[in-house]
């Protein structure tokens, strides 16, 4: 009778954040992704200096994501109790690092504009 459904998965996230905030976050994430694709297409490649700064910003995103999750869940690092906890924590950090680096890259590209000497 019951089957896996993306619809219900979305319904739970709507309940978790409220429909407006949830879809606003989805929209922001989609917007940044589109902007990222836009600058890649516009520049016909990646700007290595911008990419370097984006990479350097990754630890900030990782730490911020972990700190945010710890804060909203009344948790501490000492609560990490088993392998699955480390995997989830690592996943949060990776998501934070990846998301923030893309944001930093996109922000540089949009603010500075196209720079041929930086591209490969």
């Amino acid at each position: 009778m019951e089957e896996f459904s993306v619809g219900t998965f979305l319904a739970v996230f709507e309940e978790m954040f409220g429909p407006w905030l949830f879809w606003a976050m989805v929209a922001v994430a989609a917007l940044i992704t589109v902007a990222y694709l836009y600058v890649l297409i516009r520049d016909h490649g990646m700007g290595m200096r911008r990419f370097l700064l984006a990479q350097l910003s990754m630890p900030i995103g990782a730490v911020a994501a972990v700190a945010f999750v710890m804060w909203i869940t009344n948790s501490r690092m000492a609560d990490i109790g088993g392998p699955i906890d480390w995997i989830v924590l690592l996943g949060v950090a990776v998501l934070g690092a990846g998301g923030f680096s893309i944001l930093v890259y996109v922000a540089q590209s949009l603010i500075r504009g196209k720079r041929e000497e930086d591209l490969i």
């Binding site: 019951e2 089957e3 896996f4 459904s5 619809g7 219900t8 998965f9 319904a11 739970v12 949060v92």
Partner: peptide
């Protein structure tokens, strides 16, 4: 749901 996408949700 909290497992960060480890599983899906059940259909109603």
């Amino acid at each position: 749901i909290a497992a960060g996408g480890l599983a899906y949700a059940a259909a109603p």
